[in-house]
């Protein structure tokens, strides 16, 4: 097993962990954490690919993609947490009612 394969496999595992957390957890903050773990999985795969492609240096294009991805993830996270906070202000809970979507 090469280093590339090891970390790429870890990416698959992290993806599943994050996805499970996103599905199962009802607290909004924890859903956001689940998404961030999924994000880490995606970044890990990209960086592993960059490592595989290394010559004199690692492939810079996936590195740039991951930097962009990290900034995008923190943006979405902050927006989600601000929404969660306002939802808590309005409704007293930081969960979404489960049966709203069918109403």
């Amino acid at each position: 097993m090469s280093t590339f394969e090891l970390y790429a496999a870890l990416a698959a595992v992290l993806f599943a962990v994050g996805l499970y957390g996103f599905f199962v957890r009802q607290e909004l903050v924890r859903k956001v954490v689940g998404l961030n773990i999924i994000g880490a999985a995606v970044f890990l795969l990209l960086i592993a690919i960059a490592y595989r492609n290394r010559g004199d240096f690692a492939d810079p294009v996936p590195h740039a993609m991951v930097l962009t991805g990290i900034v995008v993830a923190v943006s979405a996270t902050a927006l989600a947490l601000a929404l969660a906070r306002r939802i808590e202000d309005e409704t007293g809970t930081r969960r979404l009612p489960e049966d709203e979507e069918s109403s």
Binding site: F22, L28, K31, V32, L35, I38, G39, V42, V72, A76, L79, A80, L83, A84, R86, I87, E90, T91, L96, P97, E100, E101
Partner: peptide, 19 residues
């Protein structure tokens, strides 16, 4: 509350979709 929740659902779905 309705719009905020709707925005939250939208964001969660779209965030997952982006990933």
């Amino acid at each position: 509350a309705t719009a905020l929740r709707a925005g939250m659902r939208y964001l969660l779905a779209a965030f997952l979709a982006s990933l």
